[in-house]
Write a protein that binds this DNA or RNA. Sequence first.
DNA 1: TTACGATCTTAACAACGTATAGATAATCTA
DNA 2: TAGATTATCTATACGTTGTTAAGATCGTAA
Lengths: 230, 230
Amino acid sequence: MNNVKIKRRKNPGTRIVSKPVKSAKKRPYHHGDLKDQLVAAAEAIILERGVEGFTLREAARRAGVSPAAPAHHFRDAKGLLGEVTLRGYRDFAAALAAGDARGGSDPAARLKEQGLAYVRFAMRNQARFQLMFQHGKYDMSYPGLGEAGAAAFAVLDNAVHAAMRIPEGERLSPDAFGFLLATWSIVHGFAHLALGGEFTLAAEPYGGQKAVLDRFLPAMLNYLPAPVRK
Amino acid sequence: MNNVKIKRRKNPGTRIVSKPVKSAKKRPYHHGDLKDQLVAAAEAIILERGVEGFTLREAARRAGVSPAAPAHHFRDAKGLLGEVTLRGYRDFAAALAAGDARGGSDPAARLKEQGLAYVRFAMRNQARFQLMFQHGKYDMSYPGLGEAGAAAFAVLDNAVHAAMRIPEGERLSPDAFGFLLATWSIVHGFAHLALGGEFTLAAEPYGGQKAVLDRFLPAMLNYLPAPVRK
DNA sequence: TTACGATCTTAACAACGTATAGATAATCTA
DNA sequence: TAGATTATCTATACGTTGTTAAGATCGTAA
């Protein structure tokens, strides 16, 4: 799993992707913004090479620091990816909430807009989304992760409460919970399959991946079982 | 990502997991069944430690050979995982076909049974299923993989053809294809989320993960949009 | 000013994937 | 059956990875 990587930085003078960002003035001993830049580098690496292609040393390289520097900001490599995942979950919850708001006061519209937002987020934040559902790759006990995940779930949960006319504090009926599972499943499955490119072959006669997202996804969300008033 | 592993084989006399299988008689120079045992070892490792925990050296260790031995059967580590994935896809297609058969002549029943089989396969073959949808971890160009994936897809495709009363050779109507996407998505999403343990928290008041699989999954499959005769 | 904690570097270690060269066994050919 | 060829395995080595330990540098508060 340790591919032989191509050597880079042949011309030490020219600007190179993996070079330190603050290379203009001689970089001081202290970086100043290492934590954020490590997160940014990690996301970039995952985008370029996939989740498997991420290495802590490469992230450090791009931030222009030694391989041991990240240890002062994250417990280990999985900790850094934990932070990436955390920020992913926060933006994810925000995106879902924005979709929910776009739905206005109609429960069905709220759910549909949330579904659109769910898939759109996955496609626009591929690195994060891949990571979020790839347990074992990041530190699942990273502080804040549990709350952030719960917050994202709550957006869906609230919309289902509204759709089923169940008061906020009350527990969902089994029927309503089944409906929640179905909604979550269909949207997540679509996002995961689309992101994995599983549709590309089958969707070719129908306009390709883009058409699937633009035309079939909204249509599919209409297949969502109409919310029943228990 | 290179955790310090606990040293094992403290009591060199007792039977130990990572020991060669044919340890009874002095192992001959040639293994005799290395390819299959490497595949088995890989699946076992993934089950125990997750996809991220797999290493080629550990697989070789369990088969009782040197780290370089696998190279004679697989191009590289991703090749071995490609073979694991290939066998996964074959068993997967067989499981779907068996479910389809259980559905008899009723198109809706065929689809429902396929859905049950889809999720059941994921839960009973966690190592393989995780791998199958984890591109980048295995060699996607491994010989036979494309055909095996297409074969699995064909099982669903055929059932949708039947449900929509479309002749086998004919292309699905856009509506029918949308229905296929929805069906695939809901089943795959459920399997992926359940396997990832995403339901455990939310499902706690409803009987836990097991109840979700036993009661909510079948109920959810009834949410599948009833096949319309275009 | 000095002391101290935070942040970084250097150096080293074990484990990894993989390539090369040589050893051994099975099979094919004459 | 004898010899040669091929398949299969070991030994060794290289570069890369994650992580740790010890020391250097900097910001800041006493």
